[in-house]
Simulated assay, not measured.
Amino acid sequence: MAIDDANASVSRRGFLKAGAGATAAVGATGTAAAQEGNESDGGGGGGGSETVALTGDNVYDPEELYIAPGTTVTFDWTSDGHNIIVDSKPGDSDWEGHEPIENEGFTHEHTFEVLGDYEYYCSPHQSLGMEAVIHVTEGGQNPNAGGGGGGPTLPDSAMTMGVATMAALVSTLALAFFFIKYGGDYEMPE
């Protein structure tokens, strides 16, 4: 059977081109989605701002935050019945938290100037684990995160997309190998 314009799209070469194109498209889409879903301002550069949400899941989000001195943190109530009780702080810090229980829509701001750890909790929900800590460090970085400054971390969504893309690529290549090895244009005896 000869390959002509009518059946060229079903040739092995056409199949491989289509498979490679589809795999590349899936990979590019997944990478773009993972990057879009993980945008962040990267934590304090000093003089910046961060937000901590007091959520309906009875957690502070994030539960651990690294900021530089001079960063303003806005505590945003996204559900009812929370407060901020300071458990421990550096001795010369003036942060007192916010003891009155507030409801959704309330905000409280504080600019953290003193280096150190600020541990706090929500008194109505402490037994449920609603506790958090703010670390004020030079440069706003986690000193235990590894040396050399590292690079950007890989978010879970990007890892998932990478694994899915690799699985699609391997499947496509295995199928292509099968067709190349066992498929073919055999001429039928007349």
Rank of each mutant, 00 (worst) to 15 (best):
residue 12 R to N: 14
residue 94 D to Q: 12
residue 60 Y to W: 09
residue 144 N to M: 14
residue 54 L to G: 11
residue 133 V to Q: 05
residue 8 A to N: 03
residue 67 I to A: 13
residue 24 A to R: 04
residue 108 H to I: 00
residue 155 P to H: 07
residue 144 N to T: 14
residue 174 A to S: 11
residue 138 E to K: 12
residue 76 D to E: 13
residue 110 H to M: 04
residue 4 D to F: 00
residue 28 A to H: 07
residue 116 G to K: 02
residue 132 A to K: 00
residue 122 C to W: 03
residue 21 G to S: 10
residue 168 A to K: 02
residue 63 E to M: 11
residue 89 K to S: 08
residue 78 T to V: 15
residue 145 A to K: 08
residue 31 T to W: 07
residue 1 M to N: 04
residue 146 G to W: 09
residue 190 E to F: 01
residue 8 A to C: 06
residue 38 N to I: 00
residue 173 L to P: 03
residue 62 P to Y: 13
residue 136 V to D: 07
residue 155 P to R: 05
residue 189 P to K: 14
residue 175 L to D: 07
residue 175 L to A: 13
residue 92 D to R: 12
residue 113 E to T: 10
residue 26 V to L: 10
residue 77 W to C: 12
residue 43 G to H: 11
residue 24 A to W: 06
residue 168 A to V: 11
residue 178 F to W: 09
residue 15 F to A: 06
residue 135 H to S: 01
residue 145 A to S: 14
residue 18 A to P: 02
residue 183 G to L: 00
residue 185 D to K: 04
residue 37 G to I: 06
residue 159 M to H: 11
residue 141 Q to A: 14
residue 133 V to M: 07
residue 101 I to F: 04
residue 142 N to I: 02
residue 161 M to R: 07
residue 189 P to N: 09
residue 40 S to P: 01
residue 53 A to Q: 12
residue 29 T to F: 00
residue 139 G to M: 13
residue 52 V to D: 02
residue 168 A to Q: 07
residue 28 A to Y: 05
residue 39 E to C: 11
residue 113 E to A: 13
residue 3 I to L: 03
residue 125 H to G: 00
residue 111 T to I: 06
residue 75 F to P: 07
residue 144 N to H: 15
residue 38 N to E: 03
residue 109 E to P: 06
residue 8 A to Q: 00
residue 71 T to I: 05
residue 2 A to Y: 09
residue 185 D to C: 08
residue 169 L to S: 13
residue 127 S to V: 15
residue 185 D to A: 08
residue 117 D to I: 12
residue 8 A to Y: 02
residue 155 P to M: 07
residue 158 A to D: 02
residue 53 A to V: 03
residue 19 G to H: 09
residue 68 A to G: 08
residue 50 E to K: 15
residue 8 A to W: 01
residue 114 V to K: 14
residue 84 I to Y: 00
residue 133 V to C: 01
residue 183 G to C: 04
residue 55 T to A: 12
residue 124 P to H: 05
residue 94 D to K: 08
residue 19 G to N: 09
residue 180 I to D: 13
residue 151 G to E: 13
residue 16 L to C: 11
residue 170 V to R: 07
residue 117 D to K: 14
residue 124 P to R: 04
residue 91 G to C: 03
residue 57 D to R: 06
residue 184 G to Y: 05
residue 55 T to P: 04
residue 85 I to T: 00
residue 66 Y to V: 06
residue 166 M to P: 02
residue 41 D to H: 11
residue 29 T to S: 01
residue 19 G to Q: 13
residue 50 E to H: 10
residue 177 F to S: 10
residue 164 A to H: 04
residue 100 P to Q: 06
residue 100 P to T: 10
residue 159 M to T: 11
residue 39 E to A: 12
residue 32 A to R: 14
residue 164 A to W: 01
residue 5 D to L: 03
residue 82 H to I: 11
residue 190 E to K: 11
residue 53 A to C: 08
residue 63 E to K: 14
residue 116 G to N: 00
residue 52 V to H: 05
residue 56 G to K: 03
residue 108 H to Q: 04
residue 152 P to T: 08
residue 117 D to Y: 11
residue 25 A to G: 14
residue 166 M to I: 08
residue 62 P to R: 07
residue 82 H to Q: 06
residue 131 E to T: 14
